[in-house]
């Protein structure tokens, strides 16, 4: 298990464009959006969170472009399947590494931006946990979509994944709404965490089924 963790993280760390690129794209989106809204107005605060969710979604979409493609092309997936007769652990760890190297940095950056936009440290408690959880869910689902459209281009993967993400986006919207009214948001965060805990286990199973079908 730890070997796998080391190998996967090594593979991603060596590909600088695959993990640093998306983080920089996220940074660029977050920097460029105040230019399109009138600076330092209240409007900025109102639309800030929707920009944050959507840019994290787009970042994940860009970063997961070729999550399985290179391993599929050079035969790593097939090799691993023959050796261990299961792809579950490999996919679980692959997704976890992506979250570690892309999901957590963009959560930290996004929290930093939300604190600086609202000028209030309390937005840390809204932005940070919800971005941590939602980015993990996004990574799982985009990995699924990209495994379905493995060698058919990432546009198809994005097309079939986006509709599945709407429930998460609705939940995120609810969190911001409740926080604006001063209600409790921990219940919604726990609901999202519950969804994540189901997804973490189920999605790698489905992806390994799909990848096996691809390898047949």
């Amino acid at each position: 298990m730890t070997d796998l963790l080391k190998i996967e993280s090594f593979k991603l760390r060596k590909k600088l464009r695959a993990w640093l690129g998306p983080i920089l794209i996220f940074l660029l989106i977050m920097i460029s959006f105040p230019l399109t809204v009138e600076l330092a107005s209240d409007e900025l605060k109102n639309v800030f969170y929707s920009i944050l969710w959507l840019s994290s979604l787009l970042t994940v979409m860009v970063s997961l472009d070729s999550i399985f493609l290179e391993d599929f092309d050079d035969g790593t997936l097939e090799h691993y399947l023959i050796l261990n007769n299961s792809l579950f652990s490999m996919i679980l760890i692959k997704i976890f590494i992506y979250w570690l190297l892309i999901g957590i940095p963009i959560s930290i950056l996004g929290t930093f931006f939300s604190i600086s936009t609202s000028g209030d440290f309390s937005s840390f408690y809204i932005a940070f946990p919800s971005m941590l959880i939602s980015s993990y869910i996004f990574i799982n689902l985009f990995a699924l979509g990209n495994s379905l459209s493995l060698n058919k281009g990432s546009a198809l993967g994005a097309l079939i994944t986006m509709p599945l993400l709407f429930p998460v986006l609705i939940l995120l919207g609810k969190i911001v709404l409740n926080a604006n009214f001063g209600f409790e948001i921990s219940n919604l965060l726990l609901l999202m965490l519950g969804v994540l805990l189901i997804i973490i286990v189920i999605i790698p199973f489905i992806i390994s089924f799909v990848v096996k079908t691809h390898l047949e």
Partner: peptide, 14 residues
Amino acid sequence: DKFISVLVLIGSVN
């Protein structure tokens, strides 16, 4: 066929 049925099943959460 397999891919479309996987996607249909997952999409049914919506």
